[in-house]
């Protein structure tokens, strides 16, 4: 698999004027996410299930946060309310001051896998967002090419998704989400299905792109290394009911590289998260045993 990238050269193709125009004058706030007292309850056959309880969270413009937690803690569900796919039962979610009521192109989504349109070529997939925003197909194609270059897949523009490796598909997914110049990028375990080597490469690649883009990123993961390596801040969630139990600042210098993974600072943060998660996982097990 050829997932190694020299992204820096390719960043030059990004339309900086568009990026500026979209984000307004320097210092303009774009991509502020605010989650206030959110409860999410699902009605199931066996009764109501509280997926998220009393969650409050503010993400500053341009901040990269990770939602970290054990299986089934509701972190994806919480992110889906920011995306507009799930309505909170209580509380409210705002992006840039506007209440979220439905999905929209200002919040780009990257899914875990199988989210590319298999009947569209790589280029058509990436051009889809711009096309939906009403620009002509020529313009949409040129935006698509720009973003495919950004993720290093310009050569594959006419390929169909299922001829690409998992890592390449996810890069197309990222390009597609970014092609709308969203103020917030929502990523739901985007690298969860990739092998370890590819995953690390993708993480570095993502940070390179984000450094240029500087939009807000909300990244859901259950992988502690991934959370520490990527984020400015880690929001740790507990399982059933999903609650936010910790908010950890990650003050590691950027740009970050793979060597960081073995540094003492990294280890200390990892230990901190590990203890929190371990405790939560144990609690979850206990509860499962009680109910089961």
């Amino acid at each position: 698999m050829n997932d190694a990238l020299a992204t820096d050269n390719r960043l030059a193709v990004l339309d900086h004027s568009r990026l500026q125009a979209k984000s307004g004058k320097p210092g303009a706030e774009r991509g502020r996410v605010s989650v206030r007292d959110v409860d999410i309850v699902f009605e199931t056959a066996t009764g109501s299930h509280v997926a998220v309880q009393n969650a409050s969270l503010t993400v500053r413009p341009g901040e990269f946060i990770c939602l970290l937690g054990p299986s089934g803690c509701g972190k994806s569900t919480l992110m889906n309310t920011i995306a507009g796919f799930v309505k909170p039962s209580q509380g409210e979610v705002k992006v840039d001051g506007k209440a979220v009521t439905e999905p929209g192109p200002d919040r780009g989504m990257v899914f875990q896998q199988h989210s590319l349109f298999p009947w569209k070529t790589v280029k058509e997939n990436v051009a889809f967002g711009p096309l939906m925003s009403g620009v002509g197909s020529q313009e949409a194609n040129s935006v698509a090419r720009t973003f495919l270059s950004l993720v290093g897949l310009a050569a594959f523009e006419n390929a169909y998704p299922n001829t690409l490796s998992g890592g390449m598909q996810q890069r197309v997914g990222i390009a597609r989400a970014l092609a709308n110049y969203p103020s917030v990028l929502l990523m739901d375990e985007p690298f969860g299905a990739l092998d370890a080597q590819t995953r690390i490469m993708m993480q570095e690649n993502l940070l390179d792109i984000w450094r240029e883009f500087r939009n807000t990123v909300v990244f859901v993961t259950h992988d502690i290394d991934e959370a520490v390596f990527l984020s400015d801040r880690i929001v740790v969630m507990s399982a059933s009911p999903g609650q936010i139990i910790a908010d950890i600042d990650v003050n590691l210098p950027r740009p970050r590289e793979q060597s960081l993974l073995t540094s003492p600072e990294f280890m200390a943060l990892k230990r901190q998260c590990l203890d929190l998660i371990r405790q939560e996982t144990l609690n979850a097990f206990k509860q499962q045993n009680k109910t089961g």
């Binding site: 192109p105 780009g108 899914f111 989210s115 349109f117 889809f128 709308n180 929502l186």
Partner: peptide, 27 residues
């Protein structure tokens, strides 16, 4: 029709008609 693809299309700004044409029918 794949639910993930419909959600992907919605988050990319697709209307109901566009989802029908670009996601449901080809699928």
């Amino acid at each position: 029709t794949s639910d993930v693809l419909v959600r992907a299309a919605r988050s990319l700004g697709a209307s109901r008609a566009a989802i029908l044409w670009h996601v449901v029918l080809p699928g």
